[in-house]
Design a protein around this nucleic acid. Structure first.
Lengths: 354, 354
DNA sequence: CTGAAAGCGCTTACAG
DNA sequence: CTGAAAGCGCTTACAG
């Protein structure tokens, strides 16, 4: 690329000379401080800014002030609907503080994730929101740089690392309990990869519910997959190929639940009549499937607002912050059809112009 | 926020003194230029960098060099699956060039969109990829700044504005023609908002196909909506409430097609047996609905690669660049079930860990 | 091949 | 209330 030839930008110097004042005063006006400015002077400066169309150079400002007004977000894959919805809210929220967002997408690659983080740190982000794709997140380089970081993962908070998460185990337990409340006794589970932390928690929550109900766990009905639609599809087929079939299924994310719906449909299994399903981390997407998915959901806007706020109020803290969760009823579990959230107008949808 | 107290970062000065050389030489080594460096010196510098864990400050580099190695992307809503998939590819692609991405999400708000663009320009992005939510895009401020910009909209290219787009009218025509090839003669359409450019093109393409087949257009079967699932749902209900019902329907984006599927299902209309559907700008999401959606698709990875390349090779050019399109067969149009793309393994899916 | 120094466009003590 | 000046951490002609 090299240096671009652009029409000379208006600089703060020109504004100052036009206003008949010093460059310092222009700064004071723009930043409302740190020194007071006489009202008359302020007016002249504002006038000069308007006349010249001056726009401050954020890069120079960042170098001098040490703050970039930029946050970084690192995610495994922005094309995942749950992540995309979260990103949407994070963007809206950070904008309220005048911050922009550097987005990093690791494509589920641990090495790339590290490169991305390093790149964001080099660009001096004021804070980082981090969902790791990797077994163990790269928090060391972040902490070493002193950059505030909020992890939205099921990891343990450390010094300098805040964690924002829901009680996955409890949520999984409730999801399973909901299936049990329908009277189903034979409940299976499709999980994520064994090495992921949230897989363990969700699996354990399922066990908790089964155990609490005094029900045996059939090992053939614990099918590991990879959190993708494709994986859910194949896990469902695998389940059907085994001896016997459960009456209900807790599927550990929405994508897999969607994949499994297709598999069951192809095999002539009716959901929820033959087999009931509850998903996890649902989005509005699931509400439009046939049948609509019953899912554990997280209050995404609330998460975003909290994350950004924590970043702003950062005080070298680590700490664990809980997120509540709730079960969004759909048709897939056997709840009465036409649940309120499916009526037009009751569910806020993002506008989708493409 | 204010200035953060962080453990003093290693600076280029320390590296230089440790290597027993000047700061300039450190730059030459890191940037591979613009001056040659003796091999022995280079080694000492690299050694010093390793020892100190030095990481160059991108902000300072940007201020001095005039290039930030940062692109900006402005979209109406990142939570839209089509946009999210595109963003994913753009991120992967820009990373290949060592660039990071500032993402702006206007939330379909024209004023906010302008603020975002101004913010990105102030941050000196090396280039902008821009999908406008607004009736007329804010290209003036971009051009005035001399920033390369690629628009992924159906707007006309101007001086300093490149446009990357498919032939929407032709694509819409082909989508409709596909329905006609099934033998359906009564074909309706659910469109986007009348004021949007792509609405006009897609509507016209539908007309073209109908006209070419010598078929009359029933005005009751032209239902405007708003490109949301909710809008598609309601448009479908509206269609059913009118006099007579078409045998087939061209729905102008995937979200509305998904919404309409639910409405038809609720009303006992079977797709495709009673009513066939073809969508537009489909994603993998549509392939997992029941029935799977037949859709016009764009080669998203190719778009991303081209956009980033154009930004790099930018030469003050405007220009129009065509994107090809293709019809992805699904079940919703009445094509034989189990089309190849629905077989496991044949379709590449993003990993979805949440 | 190497280094001293100007400069990128800001912010902000410091001195008036 | 205002201004001259140092400094943020780099890059890059320029002179050796």
């Amino acid at each position: 690329m090299g240096k671009r030839l652009t029409q000379r930008r208006v600089t703060r110097e020109e504004v100052a000379s036009l206003a008949g004042t010093s460059v310092a005063v222009v700064s004071y006006v723009i930043n409302n401080g740190p020194r007071p400015v006489a009202e008359a002077t302020r007016e002249r400066v504002l006038q000069a800014i308007r006349q010249t169309g001056y726009q401050p150079n954020s890069i120079a400002r960042a170098l001098a002030s040490g703050t970039t007004r930029t946050f970084g977000v690192v995610v495994p894959d922005i094309s995942n609907p749950f992540i995309a919805s979260l990103a949407h809210e994070l963007l809206q929220e950070s904008m309220r503080y005048g911050h922009v967002m550097l987005l990093g997408d690791s494509g589920d690659d641990g090495q790339r994730e590290q490169d991305i983080i390093q790149g964001l740190l080099n660009r001096q982000v004021d804070g980082l929101i981090y969902i790791s794709a990797d077994r163990q997140p790269h928090t060391e380089i972040i902490c070493r740089s002193g950059t505030p970081v909020i992890m939205l993962d099921g990891v343990e908070p450390g010094p300098g690392v805040s964690v924002l998460r829901m009680d996955e185990r409890q949520a999984a337990r409730e999801a399973t309990a909901h299936l049990l409340s329908h009277g189903y006794r034979e409940v299976g589970i499709i999980t994520g990869p064994a090495w992921m932390l949230n897989t363990r928690d969700r699996l354990q929550g399922w066990r908790d519910a089964m155990e609490h109900a005094g029900l045996a766990v059939n090992p053939h009905w614990v099918v590991p997959a990879d959190y993708t639609r494709q994986g859910g599809y194949q896990a469902a087929l695998h389940l059907l190929s085994g001896p016997g079939c459960p009456r209900a299924l807790f599927v550990c994310n929405e994508q897999m639940a969607i994949g499994s719906l297709r598999a069951f449909h192809q095999q002539g299994i009716r959901v929820p009549d033959d087999l009931a399903i509850v998903g996890f981390n649902g989005t509005d997407q699931g509400a439009y499937h046939l049948p609509s998915l019953t899912s554990v959901r997280q209050p995404i806007a609330e998460i975003a607002a909290t994350a950004i706020r924590l970043l702003h109020e950062w005080q070298a803290g680590g700490g664990l912050h809980d997120i509540r969760h709730f079960l969004e009823p759909g048709e897939s579990c056997g709840c009465p059809a036409g649940s309120p959230s499916l009526q037009p107008g009751l569910r806020k949808n993002a506008t989708d112009n493409y």
